[in-house]
Design a protein around this nucleic acid. Structure first.
Length: 922
RNA sequence: GCUCGAGUGGUGGAAUAGGUAGACACGCAGGACUUAAAAUCCUGUGGGCAGCAAUGUCCGUACGGGUUCGAUUCCCGUCUCGAGCACCA
């Protein structure tokens, strides 16, 4: 048996052992408390893992292993988010089936993950593209199709109950979330035919089909959700996105806006992430107000939304969104030509162009007028792009004096500006702040803005002009994608009426197609599938988006092979929810909103027992690349070292970071790297070639991708794990910098040397000394506190200190060395398994118990000392043994806090520098 | 523009209730063992000033104020960087 730390042999051995023995397989066990640690499952891309991906997995694995040692029954699964665009685009280029390439990518991912020594229970693996999995994605969709949202009860209910209510009393007494408000009587409902009823119900379903303005990406040939578009470009691929009206499946996420907002308060998530969700939900309180509008002889009531009802006396015009249905109604014949031209121009623009032209003010007069309900004044109605169709009612009252956008518009088109706040200057810009005293505002005069807002809304309600209203920025999620590689909708069209399939017919599997491109007529790829129909009726041709499969996967891990339910009730009641969820912040407004919505929906229907899915969430930072450069002298094949390059005219060239160690170039490897560098010459400093560096995104084109496999080859998985933790706080983004990895590797070697010298085993049965025990117990306390607080980086430091101290003490006692192995095993499981077994244990170290921290070593060194004040013993001090009680008492008496706190608070801490007491902390 | 974070040595970063700032590691410098190298080990390492020295002393956590006996930590203002949202009425 080798006495050296042979990491590659050790790691291979134990990884095989874990697999053969099913060491990390977990079953429901009601005798032990559960703990559910989840990582956001990866999309298995063709590029494989780089060193940044496992950061969160390592942290969560340490946490899982720690909890296991603490006696918890830990569920720590892994799976794959396997549907997605890259596999499909690869299929379009190569003709290979996405299932095939996905399978290969998953195999590579699993191999790479297993090399790092994670304690995943692979028997519970899920893949979203697997029919036995997406059966339950489709099932949830059918449930959403069959449900509506009851605003009064604030929960989802079966559509059948809505039908009963309609049959009994029409829309009277029904308060349900819907696309547009409806009004009909029971008689009208009962008189409707099948198609009419289907149309009405579609207005209420939680999964519904409807015409909406969508983000259409022509390049990708599909629609995208709001969170898949950034700055007018698709997140995947960066292609331009335009607005288009289309019939699309949607999920009524907006119905859950208030609950999604309220329930954030109870979650143990970072404040910044909660804030992001709050912004995305975008609750704003205000009022809806009705304005009378006139087009020639016709008059209508038009509703607008405002958060500034107090400024109604300053309304000098109104503005409609170009897409608003009011535009057609309110365009006067003499203005029709101009309005149509404006609408056409607006429709042609991409989202990006609209954003780019934000500063340009455009608009057109409709020729119609409205009446200000408070002043009776006649005001013109305009159309402009700066008003959004999708928010509020798509129409606004414009108050140029107190809204900068209205102000810009008024200045552009010479519309009047009426200031409403005493002393404000609106000659150059609007006064947007909600402060000051109202003027020119009738009954509001003299009030502060803060008083005027509720007063104005009350008046609006009293006079029947409108009502209090809360608006949300959160929109319904568009759920159709015109793509192949996604879940098919279990819906067919009978005479054009959408009909759900029966649950018993799931899964509806993806059909084979000859090509993965849209058809010539622009239909989705599924239209290429011959004979794909249901009893002769056409099946829905679009597929579900990426977030469909990832919205409930955490539930499926609880019961992954169940074919009768998404998750069995008793299993769900055992595992309940995710105690710790680790993943990137990029999912803040996508997956993490959809998942919460999906879970709440299932909760409403009684399929799951928890209202929120993820109790605690940690966002791991991104690991950026650290690129290296060499400097070629122009026109030559000579490269000059970093610090000497000033004297030359050079070109900076990215060099593969795998050819560089501590910024020193391996010149031989460099010559072999590419043929044109084969005869490269170098100008060196101190005999070495020093490279330049920069922090950039980790990508192939920058040659800065570090593959964890290479790190495992060179240093071992345990070093990789420790090093990724040592790099800094898990939540923080940082560049991957191999400087310093030697230090961590050195630590593991030192750790090994504590157990094995060159001559063999060093551990003995000798009892531990007090000093040794103190080192151990200090470490136990530090490490457990650190892991609970997710600061693994400082734990690694603590291990280094402890090992140095034990070395100095010449520690050989098993009493110390055994618990040390258990302690380190969450971080470096392989080396610890090996040492554990060499210490004579038959079972895996993961079956051990995390050592208990014994306070006696601090107790032994402290004692209580009564302090008298005014002749009465007031409290006892806990003093470090090194401190002379007289000094302590003197320090207490001299303490500036004594007078303040002597009677009340206990002493918390005595601050001692080597020889003297500085202060007493109460 | 709005919202939320963060600014500490040459570098990554510690300081987990306001209490010795710079733990630990890298890098660097010097030394030991080597014919040599690698590996390993030891010592030093924020800055200024004084001293042969051990040491002493002052300044230091982006900047300017404040609260406190005491501030990297709390409060106000400024600057810089990062993240998110962005015509949301």
């Amino acid at each position: 048996m080798s006495t050296d730390y042979n990491f590659s042999e050790i790691e291979r051995k134990w990884q095989e052992y874990w697999e053969e023995n099913g060491t990390y397989k977990v079953t429901e066990d009601s005798s032990r408390p559960k703990f559910y640690v989840l990582d956001m499952f990866p999309y298995p891309s063709g590029a494989g893992l780089h060193v940044g991906h496992p950061l969160g997995y390592i942290a969560s694995d340490i946490y899982s292993r720690y909890k296991r040692l603490k006696g918890f029954n830990v569920l720590h699964p892994m799976g794959f988010d396997a549907f997605g665009l890259p596999a499909e685009q690869y299929a379009i280029q190569t003709g290979r089936h996405p299932a095939e390439t996905t399978e290969e990518n998953i195999a590579r991912y699993k191999r790479q993950l297993n090399r790092i020594g994670f304690s995943f229970d692979w028997s519970r693996e899920v893949r979203t593209s697997d029919p036995s999995y997406y059966k339950w994605t489709q099932w949830a969709f059918l449930k959403m199709f069959g449900s509506y949202y009851d605003n009064r009860l604030q929960k989802a209910r079966p559509v059948e109950e809505l039908e009963k209510a309609f049959a009994a009393g029409g829309t009277d007494g029904v308060d349900a979330a819907c696309t547009r408000p409806m009004n009909f009587t029971a008689d009208q409902w009962n008189g409707m035919d099948r198609r009419q009823r289907a149309d009405v119900l579609m207005n209420y379903r939680i999964a519904y089909i409807g015409e909406t303005s969508v983000n259409w990406c022509p390049e990708l040939g599909t629609v995208l959700a709001n969170d898949e578009v950034k700055e007018g470009l698709s997140v995947r691929g960066g292609h331009p996105v335009i607005q288009k009206k289309m019939m699309q499946w949607q999920l009524r996420v907006s119905a859950y806006a208030q609950r999604l907002l309220d329930d954030l308060d109870g979650l143990d998530w970072s404040e910044s992430l909660k804030e992001m969700q709050r912004n995305w939900i975008g609750r704003s309180e205000g009022a809806e107000m009705v304005f009378k509008v006139f087009n020639g002889d016709s008059s209508y009531d038009m509703t607008i939304f405002t958060t500034r009802a107090d400024t109604v006396f300053g309304v000098t015009f109104m503005v409609l969104a170009p897409e608003s249905p009011w535009v057609a109604r309110l365009t006067a014949p003499e203005q029709k030509e101009q309005v149509d031209a404006y609408l056409a121009a607006a429709a042609r623009k991409t989202e990006r162009e609209r954003i780019a032209e934000t500063r340009q003010v455009t608009g057109v007069f409709t020729g119609s007028y409205a009446v200000n309900p408070f002043t009776g004044q006649r005001i013109p109605v305009w159309v402009s792009e700066y008003v959004l169709a999708g928010y509020g009612t798509g129409a606004i009252m414009a108050v140029p004096a107190h809204d900068s956008r209205d102000y810009a518009f008024a200045r552009q088109f010479n519309l009047p500006v009426i200031p409403l706040i005493e002393g404000c200057d609106v000659s150059k810009e609007s006064f947007d702040a909600k402060e000051g005293i109202m003027c020119n505002s009738g009954f509001l005069n003299g009030m502060t803005v803060k008083e005027a807002i509720p007063a104005a809304i009350s008046k609006v309600e009293e006079t029947g002009i409108g009502r209090r209203k809360v608006n949300y920025r959160l929109r319904d999620a568009i759920f159709s994608r015109q793509r192949y590689w996604g879940e098919p909708f279990p819906v067919y069209y009978e005479d054009g009426i959408a009909v759900p399939m029966d649950e018993s017919e799931l899964p509806l599997c993806l059909p084979e197609v000859d090509k993965y491109l849209p058809t010539e007529s622009g239909e989705p790829p599924l239209a290429r599938a011959a004979d794909w129909n249901y009893r002769g009726w056409p099946i829905e041709k679009s597929t579900m988006p990426g977030f469909a499969g990832s919205s409930a996967y955490y539930l499926r891990y609880m019961d992954p092979r169940n074919d009768r339910a998404l998750v069995d009730r008793t299993r769900n009641e055992y595992w309940k929810d995710v105690d710790l969820y680790v993943g990137g912040t990029e999912h803040a407004t996508g997956h993490l909103i959809y998942s919460r919505f999906w879970n709440k929906f299932l909760y409403d229907l009684g399929y799951v027992c928890r209202n929120e899915p993820f109790r605690k969430l940690v966002n791991q930072g991104m690991i950026q690349g650290r690129s290296n450069f060499v400097y070629r002298i122009k026109g030559t094949n000579t490269f000059v070292s970093y610090n000497l390059r000033d004297g030359y005219d050079t070109t900076e060239i990215h060099v593969d970071v795998n050819l560089v160690h501590n910024d020193r170039l391996d010149m031989e490897a460099f010559r072999k790297w590419r043929p044109d560098f084969a005869d490269a010459e170098f100008i060196l400093e101190d005999g070495e070639y020093v490279c330049g560096w920069a922090v950039e995104k980790m990508s192939k084109s920058m040659f800065n991708v570090v593959n964890p496999d290479n790190v495992c080859d060179a240093y071992g998985a345990d070093t990789l794990r420790l090093y990724e933790m040592f790099l800094g706080p898990v939540e923080q983004s940082k560049p991957w910098d191999t400087k310093g990895i030697d230090g961590v590797h050195r630590f593991l070697k030192k750790f090994w040397r504590l157990y094995y010298g060159r001559e063999g085993a060093l551990f003995t049965d000798k009892p531990a000394s007090a000093a040794e025990l103190k080192v151990l117990h200090k470490l136990i306390k530090k490490v457990s506190d650190d892991i609970e607080h997710f600061s693994m980086n400082t734990s690694v430091s603590a291990f280094m200190i402890a090992v140095n101290e034990l070395n100095e003490l010449g520690c050989t006692s098993r009493e110390i060395l055994e618990p040390m192995v258990v302690l380190l095993s969450p971080f470096a499981p392989h080396i610890c398994e090996e040492l554990w077994s060499r210490l004579g244990h038959d079972s895996s170290v993961s079956a051990a118990a995390f050592p208990e921290y014994e306070a006696r070593y601090t107790e032994e060194n402290t004692f209580e000392y009564p302090v008298s004040f005014n002749g009465k013993t007031r409290f006892k001090l806990e003093l470090p043994k090194a401190v002379d009680p007289k000094d302590a008492e003197a320090a207490v008496m001299a303490s500036p806090n004594t007078g303040k706190y002597l009677d009340g608070k206990p002493v918390r801490k005595i601050i001692v520098v080597p020889s003297k007491i500085i202060n007493v902390v109460f």
